[in-house]
């Protein structure tokens, strides 16, 4: 089985999708279903975060089981700053990204000394540390989480408390983030990451400072997840320990696998598929997790390479992996 290093972003796919996402709120508001704007924001946020995890797992071969730590860290930074009276998005959001990036730098520097199963376990361990630290901080809500007084303040006249406006902010970040990701994986840096995934020892012997590239990817992915956390906490108006939990890390990994590990659109498709499935099942039964579990199991057993490969096989329109 051959693997391609090129992952072209086709304008013929990306631009219509972007256009559709731009007009989406007008359509659902016209048919008076504003809830879908909220759902779409949520999907876009997780598409961004899952894509950042796909950079690690799918392109760098680093199966991190602790990505929720950075998502949650970003969320908590915004919520904690808000509690201390700093509501400005211009301060809080960069701070969330910076904290997540620094956390990723520290955690990555230690974790990336290990490989394989040990890497999975040590990233999980660090995420658990972060989780328990926040749960035990009673001043910041402890088990109950920390709710936001309002959404972050951008500028007079721009009120993020409007779900539609917030949607567009999320869309701007998610689409820019995805575009940068698409540039990244095809750049020299992206090639090196994929080379490391394929044969790390060989990359070292070719003269690449492997550790530096892996750490770079880990920090980039962590920072992106931090941004996702800043957006998510505004969406939910609550920073909850659940965002940091290992099941959240599991859900993020699930999105990546579901969408297609190492495929350009894998994170996006996985996030959309998982969250839509969740909504759909939840509409029918409170026991939607049972259905979700069954579907996931079926995917692993019968579509091992995720949805992106199915789309890829389906025709030229989907050949963007």
């Amino acid at each position: 089985m051959g693997v391609q290093l090129d992952h072209p972003l086709h304008a013929a796919v990306a631009l219509p999708l972007l256009a559709a996402l731009i007009v989406f709120p007008f359509v659902v508001l016209a048919i008076d279903e504003p809830f879908y704007v909220v759902l779409a924001s949520r999907i876009l946020i997780f598409a961004l975060v899952a894509t950042s995890l796909n950079l690690l797992v799918g392109f760098g071969g680093m199966v991190s089981f602790g990505h929720a730590a950075f998502l949650g860290a970003g969320a908590y930074v915004v919520a904690i700053l808000m509690q201390h009276g700093v509501a400005s998005a211009w301060i809080a959001w960069p701070a969330a990204v910076a904290v997540a990036a620094l956390a990723a730098l520290a955690i990555g520097a230690v974790c990336l000394r290990t490989r394989g199963v040990y890497f999975i376990m040590i990233t999980l361990a660090f995420a658990q540390m972060v989780y328990f630290v926040f749960v035990s901080l009673k001043a910041y809500g402890g088990d109950d989480g920390l709710s936001l007084a309002s959404r972050s303040v951008v500028a007079p006249g721009i009120d993020l408390n409007s779900d539609t406006l917030f949607y567009y902010v999320v869309l701007a970040f998610a689409s820019t983030g995805f575009f940068l990701f698409a540039r990244l994986v095809n750049s020299r840096f992206g090639r090196v990451l994929q080379g490391i995934r394929e044969n790390e020892t060989r990359m070292e012997a070719l003269g690449y400072a492997v550790h530096r590239y892996k750490l770079g990817a880990f920090v980039l992915a962590g920072a992106t997840a931090g941004l996702g956390g800043a957006l998510l906490v505004n969406q939910n108006e609550l920073a909850s320990p659940g965002t940091l939990s290992w099941t959240q890390s599991g859900m993020l990994l699930t999105m990546v696998i579901l969408g297609g590990v190492g495929y350009l659109w894998g994170g996006v498709m996985g996030a959309a598929a998982l969250l839509l499935m969740e909504e759909l099942l939840a509409a029918y039964t409170i026991h939607w997790q049972l259905g979700l579990g069954l579907v996931l199991l079926a995917v692993v057993l019968f579509a091992p390479n995720g949805l992106a490969t199915l789309a890829r096989a389906a025709g030229p329109g989907g050949r963007d992996g």
Partner: peptide
């Protein structure tokens, strides 16, 4: 250096 993030290698 391969710390270049923008130009496609292709």
């Amino acid at each position: 250096s391969s710390m270049r993030f923008w130009t496609p290698v292709r």
